[in-house]
Each structure stands twice: as C-alpha cells, then as structure tokens.
Design a protein around this nucleic acid. Structure first.
Lengths: 345, 345
DNA sequence: TTGTATGCGTTATCAC
DNA sequence: GTGATAACGCATACAA
C-alpha cells in the first residue's frame, strides 16, 4: 500500500514563523517578498525560522490580498500537435525566468471549451492571456474585453484583434505555396488537409485564390477530413486523391508535414516519381522534412517566436518600459518562409 | 496602438450579484457551486444577475476559504520531447473533464529547478502532484513528504517512491533490446544516446548488463552526448561511432527513435545495408518509426497511459471509491513492448 | 431553504 | 525599520 504520507498536516502560516522568530507576521512577509526595509539580523533570524519550519507561503492568500497572481493563462487547441509544442516552449522560456507561471488549457479546437476555459482562467486573476486564433465566442470575447487583462491572440492574423495579435497570414502562406507549384510548372495541383481548423482553412483559401486566378483550380483535387493529422492519414488521403481524380493530378500541397511525409511514403509505394512526376509541398518544416527522401519542400514558420514574442508583449504591457504607453502595435507579423527542397522540381 | 481595453475595472464580487438579485451572498455562492438546496426560482434570478453582470468568481478567495484548489501540479523535464507530450495528453484528458486544472512546470532536467517548482507548486495548495522520475533533491523530497498531497512519480520505476509510482523499468527495457539484437545474431553491438537523463542511463545499464553477460560488451561502442536529441544528432553520433570503432560494429541501440531515424538516414548515405549489414533499434515507437525505410524496430511504451493512470490514481486518493483505503499499490508497471520491424534482421 | 457570523493567510495602509 | 489593523472575496458552520 502507498500510504507513507501524513494526513491533514496543519498548514504553516506567517504567524507560526513570526512566533518562532519573535517578530510580527508582516515582517516575515517582508522577508519572504524580499522587501528592502528589513534589518539584516532580523532578516536572518526570520530566514532561519522559515527554513526550520519548512514554511511555504500560501499563494491564494497572497493573490487575494494583493491581486498580483504572476499567472499567465494559455489556451491552445491541441497538445498533440508539434506546432504548439514549440509555441509553448517560447512562452515558458520567457515566463519562467520572470517567475511567472503558466496555466495551460487545451480547448480541443472547440470555441465552447475555449469559452469555459476563459471563464475559469479569468477567475484566477491572470496577469496576461495567450489565446489561439480569433474564433472566440461572443461571450468569451466580451469577457476578455471587459477583463482589463492583456490578451495576445497568436498563430494567425486575426480580423479584429481583442488586444494584441502575434502571428502571420495563413492566407498568404497558402497563396505562396500555390504560386511556387505553378512556377515549377505543375498544372494539376491538389490539396490535402486534415483537422481543418480555421488557419488551415485560411491556407486553403489563399491557395485556391491563386490557382483560381491562374485558371488552374479544380475542387475535385481538394481532399480534406476533420480527423486528426498523421503520417498514416496523409497516405490515406493521397490514395483518395488519386482515386477521385483518377490520377489526374501532378502536385499536392499538404496542410502539414506529417501528411506530406505520408504522401511521400505512398508515392514510393505506388512508384510515383517525386518530384518529376509529382510535386509535394508540406507545411511547418518539422525536422523530419529535411530527412525524408526526397527531402520535403515546405513552409517554415517562427513557432517558438510566436510564443516568446507573445509573452514579451504581455510583460511590456504589464510593465511598460517605454515612455509612450502605446508603443505596442496591435499586430506583430512573425512571417513565414518557403523552404524548397527535393520534393518539388 | 493596441489599447482597446479598459483600465482598472473594479472586480465584481458575490455581494454585487447578491444585491442585484436581492438575495444574500451565500445564496449566490450556492448557485455558483451548484449546491442542491436552492429553490428553482431563486436560482434562476441569481443566474440572470450573474449573466447580466458578467460575474466571474474569484478563485483565490475560494481556495483560501475552502482549501480546495482543483489544481494538479505537473513537473516534467522537457517540453520539446514528444514523449512528454503524450503523457501530458493523458493527464489533461483525465483532469479536464473532472474540472481540474493543470499547472505545468518544465524542470529542464535540473533537480534544482525541480525543487524550486515544487516549492512554488506547494504554495498553490494543489490536490495532487505528478513528477518525473525519482531524482528529487533531499529538500524537495522532504517538502513533498511533509505536504500530505498525493504525489505520483511517473516515467521510470523509482527506488523509494515518495508515494505512488507509475512507469516501467527502463533497465529491463534496455536489457530486452540487447537480448533482441543478440538473438538476431548481431555480435558487435553499440549504443547511441543523447540527453543522457536518468532513465536513458538506466536503459543503457540494462543493455550493458546483458551484453556483458554474453561477453559482448565493448565500451568503445557506447557513444553518448548530453546535448539534446534530434535526427541530425543521430546521424552525427553514428558517424562518430563508425570512426571510433573503425567500422567494427554491426548494430546499434538508439536511446530514442529520432536518433535512430538519423542513423538510418546516415546508413543510406554511407551505403550500409540495414538490416543485413547493420541492425538498428530505436526507442519510443513514434509514428515515423513505422514509415522509415527500412521500418524501424523499436520499443513501444504506454506514454499516454502513464499520464492518465497517474491522474486516475490521484483522484482515487483524493476521493477513495473503494472500501479499503489502501487499494492503491505503490508501483504501477505500465510495461513496454518490443516492436520488431525491418531494421533488425 | 435561506441567511448570519466568522475565518482562511496574506498584504496595504498607516501609525509608531 | 517595525508593527497593529483592516481589508481581499469566498465558504464553513450553524442558526433561523
């Protein structure tokens, strides 16, 4: 049995430490918070008492009394998507050294779950919120607006930012890929997408726009599913594409690299020559993209930067360093970059 | 400028809602918490008032008054490692539906950072803690022991569990791989490892144990680095292995699949035939392992389960469902499984 | 079923 | 430089 833990240990408070050190609670509080005005010998006495008792300050009481939480709320739609991994790293790498904590919510691509998370989060007096995209429910938007908490919407370019927006135009990125494939003389260009979230749809829109303008758009070559992305799904959607179009297709833009790796795998199985016979372009530039055979052309995105920049902007808003309060512009474009490798001719 | 947010909005409290609804604060509290004993018409009145005012309860006050935080602290050593991704998904998938929140700390493989995180975390009155491995500092261990908070140590089998332990024996897993390679008639077997954390070291130990017993251990074939894992690193370490051993090596166990994928890539470049001439085994069974060429032999681990099981055990401890209080055993073995594909003969 | 009094552990404010 | 007192917003215990 696993019961080597004490039950109902009475929580130690400032008072206990104060009693032991022979000072008042408020003095202990000052020591804990590193306030300046405490004599060295008293500070030491208190510190010893803290160590001996193993005192740990109660954060709830502190937040309640001071309304400073050192808490940043983060809302992302998925934990299994590598993309958010890097974003999170960026966030944590800035937040942690500043002694801020991150409260992370997974919204599962659902605005309703997001709304619930926003409500819960705002109850914790966060000092900043980082939220994915711009598809908040009206209620969530209203709460956010009313809250006076700095809000950064990340990942995509958002229509009417609630506050600050850090990301890039998925529409333009999709358009750029379409243009690339056209430039490389592919003519019957398709699209494969899974988990069609708003940003993926924007990429598709931009993509279709360019093809359409070039008179090269054929909706039969657009294969999508709401199911999650995976390498296996990429292979499967590719087979579907080939069936639907009866092979009348010579290139494909995959909404992410996992799918594209699946397509490459399937091409090899079907003895389709990439890039001569068929072009493949992914999205995200995950590490494996460079190690695929042929190496995958894709789109590189500053995921880490989106996270770290968002966090920095929140700190800048909490604690303005510049004279002009409004030096933060509403939209920070983190851009994207085509990475052309061997899977496109 | 991005300043479309109100400043210093006065926080709404129970009292405000109570006044608006013409009831007492405690009644509002009951409605908010879904307590049974509130008449339907009153409840409705209160709910309307809440909606109209946009009231959001103050969590700090609630926690302070009730010492129920609905908070689970999670400490993991890395955010960039896919392994922890799956574990986290398991944790969130159980915690979120139960209305519990997760406070996530990245300890960067440092026991000191971990100790700091434990201290911060315990200050939030968490109802449970999930922590990676068993290498806590004595101070952290002491705090954990004293805290009366359920603690689950995950990932590896831990020597002296603080409370509950969910994971598997990395030692045995490493031994199993060594045995596999021996069984497949590889004779000069090496090891490649990056970011040598405690669990990776245990795998290496088990691996060496078997080779040593078979009189097949040659330390020159053990190549490790403290730098992070990546496909690129796998290729690089493989080159090092080949140089160091002057090619006198016919198989390798990579401490994770990323490294192994790099090895496969490098083998292809160097025209080394896998698996005939050279055997490769990875660890983790990430999706790409099955899509590599040749498909990668590896070890499958119940990452998601480790997370979800840990969370379930905490709930079981918080809220015992069984009569016997001690039905939770101290160690839950989530096991592992060899997945033999084409990269080993 | 509803309300009143009290305390949770900390910090702000203002004395000393 | 140090301390007393009064919040902070909510929930527990008990009374009505």
């Amino acid at each position: 049995m696993a019961n080597n833990k004490p039950q109902g240990a009475q929580r130690l408070t400032l008072k206990d430490v104060a009693a032991k050190a022979g000072v008042s609670p408020i003095t202990v509080s000052r020591v804990v918070n590193g306030s300046a005005g405490v004599r060295a010998n008293i500070r030491e006495k208190v510190e010893i008492a803290i160590a001996e008792l193993g005192y740990i300050p109660n954060r709830s009481a502190s937040v309640l009394a001071s309304s400073k939480s050192k808490l940043i709320g983060v809302l992302i739609p998925s934990l299994s998507n590598v993309v958010f991994n890097d974003v999170l790293r960026g966030i944590y790498d800035i937040a942690t050294p500043a002694n801020y904590q991150v409260l992370l919510f997974n919204t599962h691509y659902s605005p309703e779950e997001e709304e619930r998370a926003v409500r819960t989060l705002l109850g914790q007096s966060p000092e900043g919120l980082i939220i994915t995209g711009g598809e908040q429910t009206p209620a969530a938007r209203a709460m956010l607006q009313a809250s006076a908490v700095p809000v950064v919407q990340i990942m995509g370019e958002v229509d009417k930012p609630i506050d600050i927006n850090v990301g890039f135009s998925h529409f333009e990125a999709g358009a750029a890929v379409a243009q690339l494939l056209l430039n490389r003389s592919y003519l019957k260009i398709g699209f494969i997408g899974a988990r069609m979230d708003p940003r993926t749809c924007q990429r598709l829109d931009g993509f279709e726009g360019i093809l359409s303008a070039a008179n090269r758009l054929d909706k039969k070559r657009i294969i999508t599913t709401q199911k999650p992305s995976s390498v296996a799904m990429g292979a499967s959607l590719f087979r579907e594409l080939m069936t639907t179009t009866q092979g009348n297709c010579d290139a494909v833009f995959c909404c992410n690299d996992d799918l594209a790796l699946g397509v490459l795998h399937q091409c090899k199985k079907m003895h389709i020559d990439v890039p001569k016979q068929f072009g493949v372009c992914g999205f995200n530039d995950i590490e494996m993209a460079a190690y695929a055979e042929p190496a995958l052309s894709t789109v590189r995105v500053n995921r880490y930067n989106m996270g770290s920049k968002a966090m920095e902007l929140i700190f800048e808003k909490i604690n303005p360093q510049t004279d002009e309060a409004s030096s933060i512009s509403a939209y920070i474009n983190t851009g994207f970059e085509l990475v052309i490798r061997q899977s496109t001719r």
